[in-house]
Design a protein around this nucleic acid. Structure first.
Lengths: 195, 195
DNA sequence: CGCGACGTTGATTTGCCTCAACGATTGTGG
DNA sequence: CCACAATCGTTGAGGCAAATCAACGTCGCG
């Protein structure tokens, strides 16, 4: 694994000098994860922003009832991590683990602060990243409130067609805000209607 | 209305030189709105970020069925506007109108681009603003999926106690993802339990 | 083999919506 | 200053989408 992937991703949004690119590279910690392994655990303080070089991660929130609520799936080219814990320094309420084997790049908070302070171009980069993520989150809220379970699943399939191939159905159901049983029934009706 | 309010708000997150503060001031357009008036309308291209100096705005999404879905309420000290339309240049799907009489500061997109390019400190400021907003949105998604209508209303009351005093109940219901009738029944049960 | 995780299916229940009707309030024009 | 319509919150009856609970077949794996 090298850093050209992440650099190209960043260069889609901002232009980097060699110095900036090198400082970023030096700030990143390379990590590998096997399927099922954890990179962040609820209750512990989050201290890195996570860039997914390859593979897929899942972030979820464990309720008091014991059931998990999936917050997001993170595939290659995306950032993830608990911004809340990262900024407040308080224990995270999220857990993040690998759905497939993963190659990750970690940007420790201290390193990130340095990076932002020294090279304002990264302020711009993360401003854009967060801005886009905000738009996505707004859409998801609207979706949750205005669409039926069936419609949400349909949109999910169109938006992330590749995910369904290796993500257990119960996690997709959780992400979409429904029970696995009900998602199963939706699929049954779908195939029934088509045949 | 003057700009000391917004400047103080910004200075909670970043330090501004006189030059930066003055350039920002010169970029802002002052506007007043009466209760019920619109500042942005669905179908039109959004061209400004909106800062609420005083009063309260409501942003909503009109569904194909004709019913409105409230996205957010914006009170004094907050930014609002349609980031999606602002960045893409496509027509907005949101409408924003005044729930009370309002004093607003508009930052036109062109002016914002200038501001960001000329003074990186504003990249940092908006990076922080968007980052915080992202955390809020994530929490709202979790809330929507993991809490009952009753619990969502309870949390809303704790989080925004002042809003309930002048926001029509049906908009609060929409914001919380339930019908006005059902919210009414929740309130009835609440008072019944207390007496 | 036997265990546990996963997806499926059916029976039943429930949280919330829909629809319709009703006072209370507001504002608006005659 | 009073009808009038319009909007708002409330209430009840009935219905539906989705949850719950329980059982079953399948698969991968120790």
């Amino acid at each position: 694994m090298n850093v050209t992937g992440i650099l190209n991703g960043i260069k889609k949004h901002v232009a980097l000098t060699n110095e900036e690119a090198q400082f970023l590279s030096a700030s990143l910690n390379h990590t590998r994860l096997d399927q099922g392994e954890y990179i962040e655990v609820s209750g512990e303080i989050s201290n890195s922003l996570i860039y997914v070089h390859s593979g897929c991660l899942m972030t979820y929130f464990t309720q008091t009832t014991g059931t998990d609520q999936v917050i997001q799936f993170s595939t290659a080219g995306w950032w993830t991590g608990d911004l809340s814990s990262l900024t407040s320094g308080e224990p995270s309420s999220y857990t993040t683990r690998a759905l497939t084997s993963c190659e990750l790049l970690l940007l420790p908070k201290i390193r990130m602060d340095e990076l932002l302070q020294r090279y304002p171009v990264f302020e711009k980069y993360f401003r854009i990243i967060f801005q886009n993520s905000l738009i996505t989150h707004q859409n998801r809220i609207i979706q949750a409130f205005t669409h039926t379970a069936d419609e949400r699943y349909q949109n999910f399939q169109q938006q992330y067609p590749q995910l369904e191939q290796f993500v257990p159905l119960k996690y997709i159901a959780s992400y979409l805000g429904m029970t696995p049983e009900f998602l199963s029934k939706i699929r049954r009706n779908r195939t029934k209607g088509k045949s």
